[in-house]
Amino acid sequence: MIPIAVIQETAEALMDKAAIEIPEDYHNGLKAVAKVETGSLSGYVIKAMLDNYDAAKEDRCAMCGDTGTPRWYVKMGNETTIEGGPVALEAALRSATANSTKRVPLRPNRVHPLWRTDHNNNVGIGAPEIEYAYEPGGEWIDLITVHKGGLFGTDYRMLFPSDGIEGIKRFYLDTLVAFGKRGLACQPAIIGIGLGGCKDTCMVLGKRAACLRVVGSKNPDPKIAELEAEFKQLGNSIGMGAMGFVGNSMVVDCHIEVGYCHTGGMQMSMHAFCLSSRRAVARIFADSRVEYRTDPDWFTDYQRRETVGWEGVETADEATV
């Protein structure tokens, strides 16, 4: 059983890390971009951002004043139990979010949509979001916090099979150009694209593609991996860089995730995980050991499975035979 105190303590440490420390994969990705950026203003901006990451770490200060909308992704091995159960887990994550907002400090961004009530702790109705996934085998829990910026760079469109790859490219460019102007998307960014699913799952897929995969990762479908590389190159050939200045750095990496969709449709969502790509991950084991890492490792073969059952796991159909 995973002790609830260890969960809350780890969650608080993750909140700090996400806000303060740029993940290594994004940091390396931006350094690579800095080397090839030809625009002088865009290059200046990227250099300032790299300095800013160092300043944030040295001063233990949030790297960006807009500390996004903190949320949680929770993944568990099939044998995991939590002291106090799932309700205690959710209370611990809400407490960690509130406590860290005051301690780091984070900007208390979360308000009521109509009454603009602010509890000054990033907690409220539906906030922070907590999403779950499970993996076969094992007694462990992964806590992942993502503090994505919330206002610009994301869009959704219902495309159709006849739109084809050319239609997908059009919407991709439309979104990059629209939100890239004046740098509203806070590029260079990790671009996540969700294809398929239903409207809600398409948005979820694209957001996870942006926030839960590391720079340099590839989709296991080789044809999708090719598209990812092509889209990265296409985005960087617009002629636009950081802050919408002339340059060639819009996309640090492009990740595409797919889900089975209605036979008549081809849903598409776009998400930009910005210059302050805030994410932090830890795995807690039953013996209270905690391992911190930066790769959420969310999209496993199991999460992307196409089959009814899963190898080595008996379904109810099979059990009753």
Partner: peptide, 9 residues
């Protein structure tokens, strides 16, 4: 600059 240089500012 970059909109994210919060720590420098």
């Amino acid at each position: 600059v970059g909109y994210g240089t919060g720590a420098l500012l």
